[in-house]
Write a protein that binds this DNA or RNA. Sequence first.
DNA 1: AAGGATGTTGCCTG
DNA 2: TCAGGCAACATCCT
Length: 241
Amino acid sequence: MEGPSIVILKEEIRAFKGKKILKAIGNTKIDKERLVGQKIISFKSWGKHFLIEFKNFSLRIHFLMFGSYRINSHKNSTPRLQLKFEKGELNFYTCSIQFIEEKLDDVYDWEADVMNDQWNERKALKKLKMIPNTMICDALLDQQIFAGSGNIIKNEVLYRVQVHPESFIGKIPLAKLKEAIKAVRDYSFDFYTWKKKFELRKHWLIYTKKKCPLDHKVIKKYTGEGKRRSFFCPACQLQFI
DNA sequence: AAGGATGTTGCCTG
DNA sequence: TCAGGCAACATCCT
């Protein structure tokens, strides 16, 4: 689940703000009893982290690859965590859940969160300049630089800016690098809009495709240190090495 | 319809 | 000793 999906969750769950947890069950190993009686102060997100803020601590939920949730409904499987309220319930499945004791502002740099109002592209550029020998395909998945960017966003952004995933940061012209940084945020908002309309896939230009929009053959390769799937068109996307 | 993946952590091994 | 590999998570898609 990439950053935009977490922003959507944050919106869908809004009505539970200020509500008191009456019951907490599920197969998570965290101390669920600690949640009972707590009032939700706010829902926040940082990249792929979904955050529930309480008075003296917060809960961090990460959905990884297969995580899911239900609001006021549930699946047949045991939830990792279920929160019951006077009216309604929240169910989180197959996710990683942790307590955060520190204040969220002390833990998270909101300027690194691609979809946040505080997103700082100059800071992202500065971080990229520090890793010239890193491939762009790895950098676009680095949550310390682009929190919320995932493998779909990586692939679509690289196609949009016509850069080969195995290009080295230090070899990419500055203007192109800046263009890529902007494209990560722009594509994330497009992702958000399309996902809400259940038409995300329809808009993929390169991800999982066999042919690019210009009908060239698309290469599928596990690239970079992370060895994540990259789909790219060698004809459309220039490699900087 | 079997197999892989929108992701990260943590254990195991050499 | 530590980096790299890989299982785990459990569902949905091709």
